[in-house]
Amino acid sequence: MIEFRRISYDAVQVGEQFTSNDLVVKPEDLDTFAYAVDDHHPWYFEDSPFGGPIVHPTLLANQALMMRHNKFVVDAGLHAAMQFEFIEPIRVGMRVRTRGKVVDKYEKRGRHYMVTEFVTTEEDTGQILLRGQFTQMFFPD
């Protein structure tokens, strides 16, 4: 059983590992994302050059960000930076999971930050779909 702690600069350690929940990418996930970002490209709904529809390349970004919520209570944080590398197209029906690790934490101009690397894979094949890194600023109390 997980004992959740409130996230803070002191509570997070470099090297700490995170794992997301499994997610089966569903048609409704695609519809919701398309509405939220107002991007209705036909490759996401009809056919694509990859053979059949794909989903928005950044659709799984929140799975990476939400990994921390499986260990910590995260009331608020400001997203400072994000890096992506898109390896393979993502499709509806894939079962995907993101794993990550805190690679740095630092103070800059009186504010505290944590840097997390992540890799998102299709669980049934082990294929890496995307990877990247995000930097979050801890919210002052």
């Binding site: 050059p49 794909i54 390349p57 400001l78 930076a81 890096q83 992506f84 898109f86």
Partner: peptide, 15 residues
């Protein structure tokens, strides 16, 4: 870039 971003794209963003 179409396919060349979906497979092989990179992004580096500062908010």
């Amino acid at each position: 870039l179409g396919e060349g971003f979906v497979k092989g794209g990179k992004m580096n963003v500062k908010f």
